[in-house]
Every structure is written in C-alpha cells, then in structure tokens.
Design a protein around this nucleic acid. Structure first.
Length: 589
RNA sequence: GGCUCCGUAGCUCAGUCGGUUUAGAGCGCUGGCCUGUCACGCCAGAGGUCGCGGGUUCAAGUCCCGUCGGAGUCGCCA
C-alpha cells in the first residue's frame, strides 16, 4: 500500500501519529516560507504544511507542485492552533506536517479545476469526464448510485429473489423501440440485437421454475434522447411466478418504504396511492402526473354549453370537450405576453387555442369574458373554488387534445409557479391502462405496454366487440411526474397470446418466427407470472434531486448519442467491415 | 424529422439599444516576492481563426443564409 490513511478520514484522534497519504493537489498556497497544499482523495481533503524546518528538500519540492499533481506525503498529524482551525471542512482541526514528499505523477495544467464552484458547460465536462468525476458533487452521485443499487439488491435478496444474467446478444424483434444491432462474423448477413429489456428471457426463467428473479440489467434503445432518457440505461428487472398484480405492487411498495427509510430516514406510509389510468387522464391530463401538487383539470362542459362563446359551444356540439385548470396566484406572474407564450406552448400539443380568465373579486377578467353571463362566470369560479389573483386556463378541443395540452400546461405551470417542494418524493401507481391503442396513421391496433401483457380477464369478450375497451393488467409507478417503473401480469396461456397477436395483426407464422422460443416455452407448463422493471437511472436522479439522467451516469452520451470522451461512435477499418460482410452504402464525409 | 435556446481567451462571462477604433473582466496559466494561509496576498507577463462556411456592407463578434456541436422539447421510446 502506498498509504496508511485516506486524506478525508484524518481527525484529531490521529494527532501525534506519523501517516502516509496519497491524493491530488486540490490547491496550493505558497507563502515562500511555508507552503500549504490541500490534498484530496474521494474521502475528502486535508491540509499539508510544508515547513523548511522539516527538511529543505521536501519544502523545495512542494514549491514546484501544481494543481492535480498526484502526491504521496509522509508526515505527522498535528493539531492546529485554535485561531487556525478551518471549520468549513471535517479535517479542519488538524494539519499534516510533511517530512517526505513523493510526486507520484505530474499533471498537465487541467482545463478546469475539479474544485471549481462554477463548473463549465456540459459538453466540456463530458469531454474531460475524468476531471468532472473528480468533482465532489459527481463523486457523491456515483457513491449514492452504488448505495441505492446495493440496497435494492439487498431488499430482493432478503426476499428470496435470484439475480440471473440474461444475454446481451439476442434476437431482434421488430416491435417496440429501434434495436441496436451487432453483426455476426460467423453468420454473414445476420445480426444480434442488444436487449431493449430482458423481457422474454425473464418470462422463460419463470417457465424454468426460478419463481423470483431480479437483475440489474443494462438495456439499449436506439431512439431519440431526452433529459431522462439515454440510449443505454439500467433497469432493475423483476419477475415473479405464482403471483397476481397485487403481489408485484406490494413488493415494490415494500421496496419504496425500505429505500425511503434507509436513504432518507423517513417512515413512508403504505400502500402507495393508486389511480386508474382513466382517473389520471381525467384529473391530470397525463398518465404520469406529478402528484406533489393539485391544480387538477376540471370539466367545464356542463357550465358553458349554452354560453355565448362560439368556440366553446361549437366544440361541445361537435363532440369535443371544454376543460380547464386554475393556476393559483398566477395573475401577477403572467403578463399578457407570457400568456401568449403559453398559448404557443399548448399549440405544440395540437390545441387550437388557450382561453384564460383572470379571477377578480367581481368575476372573471378576460378578452372573452363578455361572452359569459355573470351566472356562468360565477359557476366557473365556483367550480375551481378560484380566488382573486388566480388564472383559469381552458382548452376546447377533441378529448385527447384537452388532456395532452392541459396535462403539459399543468406540468409547466407547476414548475414555474413552484407549486411543489423539490425535496419531496411522491410515488403513485397508475393502473388499468388500455391494453391496445388505435394507431390512426397505420389503421391498426398497437400494444400499449407490450404484446405479452395479460388482459383483465373479464374484458376478454371485448376482443371481438371493442378492443379499445380491454384493460391491461399493467401498472406504472409514477414518481414526481416521471415513469419510475412499469410492468404487468404476463400472458401464460398460449391461446390468449394468440388472440393478442391476431389483434395486433401479427400473422401466426410471423409470431412463430419472431417469438417462437417464448411461445414454445408457454406450451410446456408456464406458471402464471408477472413482473416489473424500474428505471434505475431515474430513481437515482430523483433521489438526488438532479434534473437530468446524465449526472448520475459515470459515462453518459449526448443528445446525438455520442460519447464525447471516447469519440464513439466512430468509423471502422475496411478490414473489420469485410470480415463482417458489411458494405457501407454512403461513406461519411 | 420539426420547433426553441446556446457557441467570444484554457474556463465562466461582458461586449448595449443602433454595424465601425487597440475585443475586456474574473478565475486559471508563466515569472518574481511573501512563515499561518485555506476563494491567501502583492508585482509583472503571456494568452483570441469571436464554432465553421458563405452573404449583405465602406465597415460584421454584432445583421442574413447555411452548416457543425451542445441543451430543452414534440414526434419517437412494444
């Protein structure tokens, strides 16, 4: 070992001991006579004093030391005089008086200091990720991720779950997200796909009798990125046999309670709240509402069906809806111009427009208020129990558009009006999703969750009459407006599986070709089973209060899926391509 | 693929409404001084294809078009 102690662990208790420590130069203060160096490792930093009276050589060498050089220092731990104590750091009551200095490695001048209080832009941080990761904040996030992952493993281990690895090189299935493909050398023209999730394998593990499975699984989806989406990400993948929906919900409820206690010391009440999909869409306009605040959507149809405002009246007459929400005390924060911005915002969600009313003592103040009788105004005000200073926003449109537009508006206003405590974590289940959704462009039914999701048994008759009515035995766990986990009871009956494929328009022979290994497995005694997958990156992000997923991933990719540190993706040698029987059609410029 | 924002010294930024001169500051860097600093201090200094390309103009960091890169978002994400 090159060290006897870590920099950050030294305290008054070690005073008098001679120690050897290693670390990076966090900063150097050269007083000509005395030289002070803050030496940093991942446990913290400690001040080393280089005094000429302890040896001319080590003192002179300290004068040549620069930031981020790697040092090994042997010296005595001494207590600081009371006036010299630095209360800002845990090691501030002691110094290391150097007796020997070894420069283990010089550093080039770093493009930015890990100790900076004002980190550079993200592009630069990603290019020099090894320096960025030296920053205390990032070290803290990496450490927390380790801890959370370990707690999750412990929780499932204690409950008898087995961690089983599944292949990374699998078979491409055209449904779902775009696959990342890996060419096969020994099978020219054939490709593996990296897993979008271990879905099929974990179901097969159930058939194989491993009735409690979990895996911290890396997954890959070649879709466009977001603040909470990376092309490769980590799922806590769970599957259980001989269980019902309720068992999965309770298992995850227990995990949440366990984590909230271990991480935050909070006694989290169970069960977690549950809402149906229909209820979520009706009250919040979203299937993943942020439930840290209210500001619910209200149906204004009955109140305005006879009003003088033709937009509302005509929309209602045409089968549309008029819905709205009441933004508390927004009148002063939103000028006319800012409301125009909100109007543009809801147009992104296909809304034709955004009506608004400023709530006053007397009634409603708005360019369109004149179209509403005093009674109608009073009714709208009463519907929201609106207070003077509030602003009521309304969208009149197709039902789905009112949800999408108002759901997005609610989310935006919630942030802008700071309607929630950023430290709070709110978990809720969304249940009874539709099993299928109608794809208007392609004129066909799509699986809302995935094609292996079991329908709610009493809805099975709807297969013949109204597939849109079929509820799925699926469930999402929503955390602060993010989809934190998603799962379902699976189909274990080949006949039901066949019904689903039929409705999705996947011909029997095609289903057989794509999923034969699953379908075959289901025919050999598949137990009823259900599962769920947690988005580990998002959980870490939410627990740590980060606003993007990249900060909790050691080596993340940019929005264009590049790794700025390594330069991936890159072109490859012609020889490699030839070996793989691949010809690139249009070589990059 | 669409929309929006950003790109000036190694880094963080200023550079105005309204186009012009030698493009500035702080941090960092280099040299010197300094024995109790911890955002050390003091003195001196170096450092710029204003992302890139084109256009408008007597004149472009500034205006216009394109492009590259980064971010947010819609589509997409069974």
């Amino acid at each position: 070992m090159l060290r006897t102690h870590k920099c950050g662990e030294l305290r008054k208790a070690q005073v008098g001991e001679t120690v050897t420590i290693c670390g990076w130069v966090d900063s150097r203060r050269d007083h000509g006579g005395l030289v002070f160096v803050d030496l940093r490792d991942r446990y913290g930093k400690v001040q080393v004093v280089f005094d000429p009276s302890e040896g001319a050589e080590q003192h002179a060498a300290a004068g040549d030391v620069r930031n981020e050089d790697v040092l090994q220092v042997t010296g005595r731990v001494v207590a600081r005089a009371p006036k010299d104590v630095n209360a800002k750091i845990p090691t501030g009551e002691i110094d290391i008086r150097s007796q020997k200095l070894v420069v283990l490695n010089k550093s080039r001048t770093v493009p930015f200091e890990p100790s900076t209080t004002n980190p550079p832009n993200e592009e630069f941080r990603l290019k020099y990720r090894f320096l960025d990761l030296r920053r205390p904040r990032l070290q803290e996030l990496v450490l927390f991720r380790h801890r959370l992952t370990k707690l999750i493993r412990d929780y499932f281990d204690r409950d008898g779950f087995l961690e089983i690895e599944t292949p990374m090189l699998g078979r491409s299935t055209p449904e779902g997200a775009r696959d990342y493909l890996v060419p096969s050398r020994v099978h020219p023209g054939c490709f593996y796909a990296l897993p979008q999730s271990p879905q099929i394998y974990k179901q097969i593990l159930m058939v194989a009798g491993f009735d409690r499975y979990m895996q911290i699984a890396r997954c890959f989806r070649d879709e466009d990125l977001r603040a909470d989406r990376q092309p490769e990400f980590t799922q806590v993948d769970i599957e259980m046999a001989f269980v019902e929906r309720e068992d999965i919900l309770q298992t995850v409820d227990g995990l949440v309670k366990f984590l909230m206690r271990e991480v935050r010391g909070e006694d989290f009440p169970l069960p977690l709240p549950r809402l149906t999909y229909r209820e979520a869409m009706e009250r919040y306009g979203s299937d993943k509402p942020d439930l840290r605040y209210g500001m619910e959507l209200h149906d204004l149809g009955p109140l305005v069906q006879n009003c003088g405002f033709s937009v509302f009246k005509n929309t209602l007459a045409g089968g549309g809806r008029v819905r709205g929400l009441c933004a508390p005390q927004a009148a002063e924060k939103y000028s006319r111009r800012q409301i125009d911005d909100l109007t543009l915002f809801v147009k992104d969600f296909k809304a034709q427009g955004l009506a608004f009313f400023r709530v006053t003592e007397a009634g409603l103040d708005s360019p369109i208020a004149k179209f509403f009788t005093p009674e109608e105004q009073a009714a709208i005000k009463a519907e929201f129990q609106a207070q003077p200073g509030d602003v009521i926003f309304c969208v009149a449109d197709k039902p789905s558009v009112t949800s999408a537009a108002l759901g997005a508006l609610r989310s935006r206003l919630g942030k802008e009006l700071k309607l929630f405590d950023p430290n709070q974590m709110h978990f809720a289940w969304i249940l009874d999703f539709p099993l299928f959704s109608w794809n208007e462009e392609e004129k066909r039914w799509d699986a809302e969750h995935h094609p292996f999701c079991n329908p709610v048994p009493e809805d099975v008759p709807f297969f013949e009459t109204d597939p849109g009515q079929i509820r799925a035995t699926s469930y999402d766990l929503v955390i602060n407006g993010y989809e934190g986990a998603s799962g379902s009871v699976r189909i274990h009956d080949p006949a039901v599986q066949q019904k689903v494929f039929d409705l999705l328009g996947i011909p029997a022979e095609q289903a057989e070709e794509r999923f034969s290994f699953l379908l075959e497995a289901l025919r050999y005694g598949a137990p009823p089973h259900a599962g769920i997958a947690l988005g580990l990156d998002r959980w870490v992000m939410l627990f740590t209060g980060c606003d993007n997923i990249r900060d909790v991933i050691a080596f993340p990719k940019t929005q264009k899926a590049s790794d700025l540190l390594s330069g991936a993706p890159s072109t490859v040698d012609a020889r490699q391509l030839k070996e793989l029987s691949i010809r690139v059609e249009e070589p990059p410029k």
